[in-house]
Design a protein around this nucleic acid. Structure first.
Lengths: 206, 206
DNA sequence: CATTGTAGTGCTCCTATGTTCACTATGTAA
DNA sequence: TTACATAGTGAACATAGGAGCACTACAATG
């Protein structure tokens, strides 16, 4: 538990944080002194030393302008940046540069399976009973295997489709979640593969 | 359009970016020279001057360690941090500290109406035909007024509810999107208010 | 071959910045 | 009243760091 700061120490720490965010580099002792209208850098140094000791700052001795905050990692390190891909097809690298339609970011804590995730805009209404509508952004975690009940993106005869994967004994199916469409018997297909599993859905109303 | 950089300039700019992200402050000319095993700071200065001229860096003359990147805003500035609230009730500040159950972040570009948004975990199945399931995270933009067809969070007799807002002439209703529930005639209510409009939905499969 | 651009050196000089000491002032607690 | 904690001063000194000149080397271009 970090020790309590005096009022002056808090003021100085705040100033340093703002200075760094506005300038892209930290202040010197003289700049801090100037801001607080103090005549002596030694007073500033004593406060800085206390803040270092209490774990709020770090600095390098005998080196100019090296104050550094010891804050938690910037938020962007907790972000997951997800590429949005245009099409999913056989023999076509999904994450090829020319297949990317953009990226978006979200809190890494929202998604468990993060490795190589990509986003895909939903086309069609085959999964509306699962709460996945046309225009939604689904987040896919690449996986070759999946489990009964997973919503997956698969390739059938070089066509990408997103359905619920159903396994009954040795038989496997892809089930639309819309009565308008028929269940697909995967046993009749030799040319299919699982691309990945849906791990998230995002929809915006704009 | 920023002018083209030479290979050496790119190397130096990359080094500065990494140095700043690892250290929290920029390098000096001598630190750059040391890294690239150059004997003279003047050579470094010429490269820095070029990078400044080409718009990639800024620096303060005669002031130590003031290199600063002129990159686009860090990713975290493009993030929208959304508080997740626990309950919505009359006379109860939604964003009160004790009502917060966490926060999550997502790309600011995914949501248009960003002001004072908050997140809410969905309870119940009244909106499943709109693709909003129990456990989903809806993002609410506070608004007192809304339009026909909007999905809203409203207070009825001090109870929060999320439904589709329907307006027919002078009559207004809250419509569940599940046949199991009845439409709510808002004309019969004096004690209701609109809290906000749903502007996004997020669901994860974990 | 001459010119231009890029990249670097050696060196000096100047300014910025950090460090430290002995001191004062004020408020609080014992 | 004394002791302690907090906050600050004035000054000197040492080191870090930026600025800039005249030069060399090499590659590319006209």
């Amino acid at each position: 538990m970090k020790a309590e700061l005096t009022d002056r120490q808090k003021e100085i720490l705040d100033f340093i944080e703002v200075f760094i965010s506005e300038n892209g580099f930290p202040p010197t002792f003289r700049e801090i002194a100037s801001h607080f209208e103090l005549a002596s850098t030694f007073g500033v140094k004593r406060h800085i030393d206390a803040l270092v000791k209490k774990g709020h700052l770090s600095s390098i001795s005998n080196s100019g302008r090296t104050l550094s905050l010891t804050n938690p990692a910037p938020k962007s390190e907790n972000m997951l940046e997800i590429p949005i891909v245009g099409r999913v097809a056989a023999g076509y690298p999904i994450l090829a540069q020319e297949n990317l339609e953009g990226t978006f970011s979200l809190d890494a804590g929202l998604i468990r399976r993060k490795k190589d995730c990509f986003g895909l805009k939903v086309k069609g209404d085959s999964m509306i009973n699962a709460g996945i509508f046309e225009g939604d952004l689904v987040i896919i975690s690449p996986q070759k295997e999946c489990e009964d009940g997973d919503i997956v993106v698969a390739l059938l005869d070089d066509e990408a489709t997103m359905k619920r994967f159903i396994k009954k004994g040795e038989d496997i199916f892809l089930k639309p979640e819309n009565e308008k469409y028929s269940v697909i018997d995967l046993n009749k297909y030799s040319n299919f593969s699982i691309i990945g599993k849906v791990v998230g859905v995002f929809r915006s109303y704009n």
